[in-house]
Design a protein around this nucleic acid. Structure first.
Lengths: 211, 211
DNA sequence: CTTGAAAATGAATGAACGTTCATTTATTTA
DNA sequence: TAAATAAATGAACGTTCATTCATTTTCAAG
């Protein structure tokens, strides 16, 4: 508010260091966990003394809060501006978007799932709210699609969690350069999700073989 | 081997304490994470001085190793002796078993997924091997079922991970006493999984709306 | 060129950590 | 009952932790 444009612009060196602190913290938190990663390690990665970190973040907890809140906010705004074509089936659009975003930011995703318990009550609530907003997107897609007869889901909220858990598990095992490309993954999971919520009756005859 | 029956039986007090150490550690590790949980907290929960813990476990790491390895071993042997009827569809049997086991032992499951990175390289390898054994069960079910025409999966290994990730996510949000019973959950997820791997063609018309 | 704030230093603080240990208490074996 | 062993105590160990702070360096603005 009171900060002039010239002043904000002038502090370029400090902003650059803050950026590197965030980047080092992401790597350390993802690799060792918030509690096991030390400010000394982060400072060392940045190439600075431990005390210098406190010119950019008031506490270690604030670094975590910054990482997680901006990750969730990035996720939500990335969905808004997702480049995936508008006439694509909404479910396909969501699945492809989710997989791409989560494979691109594996470390941040990992932290956001593992370090919820390391957050202050207040910061936790903020992250949880963002997460609910994201889930609501898929829930709405499923609900509207079911009413339109394109899908059939018994419980849209549970199905949302099931699908998101399934998709979010990918970065835990997927590695670039394996036998599956990112595009292969998208197709495989898209097929699973599409079938899981398909309206076609696939009820198995109780106890019998389905030949 | 060389330990006589009377001797093993006689050390009842110490074994009981070790049991309570494990139980306290499970709760603390699940609630705060391995790194953030202290030996002093665990000792306090047990009602003993910190040093006494070292009569039962050589190090903190050994407690984690004990918890995770015995959890994986419990999981595998529980599957072997699962009480679910033999003529049930194998996939249904697996899904029901997995949900029941993981809801019963939410804390241990949580630790086994979150604290892999806190394990020594050696202990990590042992847990990973057990996990692969468990995944192999579902992969075989999917592969055999596909050959028999009961299911249709493109990639049994990826589908295995997708299904297990989906199911293992349940304990993160499911709470007893909510509007859904454990049995409701089983049915909902069973339906999703069955449809996802169903042989019936559910291919969506490319690019068009499905009204 | 001077000034002043931002940024980094280097050393220090007190608290908490996992673990050790000499000793005491409790329990089992002989 | 005496000897032996297990279990627990209570205090201490050295180390590491997040954080603070007086001081120095850096560098754009006037």
């Amino acid at each position: 508010m009171a900060v002039s444009a010239t002043k904000t612009q002038a502090r370029s060196k400090g902003l650059e260091t803050a950026r590197r602190v965030r980047s080092a913290a992401v790597k350390r938190f993802a690799a060792s966990g918030y509690a096991a990663a030390s400010m000394r390690e982060i400072a060392n990665d940045v190439g600075v003394q431990p005390g210098a970190l406190y010119n950019h973040f008031p506490t270690k907890q604030d670094i975590l809060k910054d990482l997680m809140l901006s990750h969730m906010s990035d996720l939500l705004s990335a969905w808004e501006t997702s480049g995936l074509s508008d006439d694509m089936d909404p479910l396909e659009r969501f699945v492809r978007f989710h997989i791409r975003f989560h494979l691109q930011r594996a470390d941040e995703v990992f932290i956001s799932y593992m370090e919820l318990r390391s957050l202050d009550a207040e910061n936790f609530a903020a992250v949880e709210q963002a997460r609910r907003s994201y889930e609501a997107i898929l829930t709405q897609i499923l609900t509207e699609g079911t009413m339109a007869g394109r899908y059939k889901v018994d419980n849209a909220k549970v199905t949302t969690r099931a699908i998101i858990a399934m998709l979010t598990g990918i970065p835990t095992w997927y590695r670039e350069g394996g036998d599956l490309s990112e595009s292969d993954i998208e197709l495989l999971y898209l097929d699973l999700v599409r079938k899981a919520v398909a309206p076609t009756s696939t009820v198995s005859p109780k106890g019998g073989r389905m030949t």
